[in-house]
Design a binder for these strands. Structure first.
Lengths: 226, 226
DNA sequence: CGAACTCGTGACAGTTGTGTGACAAAAACC
DNA sequence: GGTTTTTGTCACACAACTGTCACGAGTTCG
């Protein structure tokens, strides 16, 4: 369920936008002023914000900046003013798109979809516990649990595992691992093999038959997605 | 250094766009047709693509879809047509933004910056899997699935299949395959036969009667479109 | 019809890629 | 300062993969 917050002072426009978006399947929150919108978004964050520029009190530009101080939510400006100056200012303030009223619902909806495609899932930002099947990584704590039991990993093994986990499901070449874990631009790729081998001893139940940390012959190594 | 590819058939517009963008500090690649643009982008990928809709030959929509098959590059449509239908179609095809000509350089530049803010760094980007009927290719994961089951392909088979899949539906000559998969400029073309044969054993239900990876006598091999 | 050609495939030997145990240097710890 | 742990290098062994060849079936064409 995708929620959209509409910040717009004109009652008629706000309602018609809300109805149109609801018809497109969105859950719609509304606010008549920037202040109200900011509070609303803090309490119950929507996935996308639509904001008018000419608002009583705090104006649209300021509203965008305020939102951006704590929030990466996609912001689309819906304004009556078709002026390069405003467009540039709004985008610079942190808006992602700018459409001119009146706008066709279909277009608005398509732009929202396009924007959402580009929006990274919140997950990739900070180090947070990653659970991969029976493995649990706690990068901030420097811990790795296998079925709830703490693994005794060395620092290199830990970093290697984190790097692989960050790209779980993707093959990472020895070169890539060397660069990201060891910060070597060149070097003996066999080093990676050895450490992968050691990591396997600890991470796999049967190191002879790896199921989690697998080799992709000719390409590199991969941590399986659960 | 940020590179932008401009695909636009009108010489005057293309040049003025290119100059304007260069003034803004971008490196600009140009192409007068979609075909040229696609080749250019494959050879030397830009960070953002600007594309016109009305192009001779392959049109803008098709160009966008073709780009999106392998590339997550941000795409901005720059079109003379201000029509909801076109806008929606372009965005649905995979474009990220749509601006109407003539557009102020400042606005275009601001939109490019806004878009780039949203674009995840290339390292995190996950190429989307290619699905061809019952076959699913996941190049980044080094995996190929047939009806959901993992195939054990060797590296050469894998690369061969990827190359064929990239041009699914068209015949590739042994020469082309030798060049692209093996990076041989010359060599024994029978080598290709052998590997195609081995690949067939794994990809076809009845290798004697190939339905997916077919021979085009006298010309080469072809991976059937679903 | 037969010669020339195309293509599929099994066999095989040489090459490459990978796992691993041993070991010494380096770092961490006490 | 000595002990323990970690790290990087090496060498060997083995398995997987690759490229070549040769034979045979099927096709094309004169």
């Amino acid at each position: 369920m995708v929620a959209v917050l509409v910040i717009e002072d004109d009652d008629r426009i706000r309602l018609s936008l809300a109805m149109a978006l609801e018809d497109e399947g969105y859950t719609v929150h509304t606010a008549a002023t920037a202040e109200e919108g900011l509070v609303r978004q803090r309490r119950e964050p929507a996935d996308t914000v639509l904001v008018d520029l000419m608002l009583p009190g705090i104006d649209g530009f300021e509203c965008i900046r305020e939102l951006r101080r704590h929030d990466e939510v996609p912001i689309v400006v819906v304004s009556a003013r078709d002026d390069t100056h405003d467009i540039v200012a709004a985008l610079e303030a942190g808006a992602d798109d700018y459409v001119v009223k009146p706008v066709a619902t279909k277009e608005l909806s398509a732009r929202l979809r396009a924007l959402r495609r580009r929006t990274r899932p919140a997950s990739v930002a900070e180090p947070r516990p990653t659970v991969l099947g029976e493995l649990e990584l706690r990068p901030y704590a420097g811990e790795v649990l296998l079925r709830g039991e703490l693994l005794a990993l060395t620092r290199t093994e830990f970093r290697l595992l984190c790097e692989l986990a960050e790209h779980a499901g993707q093959v990472l070449s020895r070169q890539q691992l060397l660069a990201r874990v060891w910060e070597y631009d060149y070097g003996d790729e066999r080093l990676v093999d050895v450490h992968v081998g050691r990591l396997r001893q600890k991470v796999e139940d049967d190191p002879g038959n790896p199921v989690r940390l697998v080799t992709v012959r000719g390409m590199g190594y991969k941590l399986q997605r659960p």
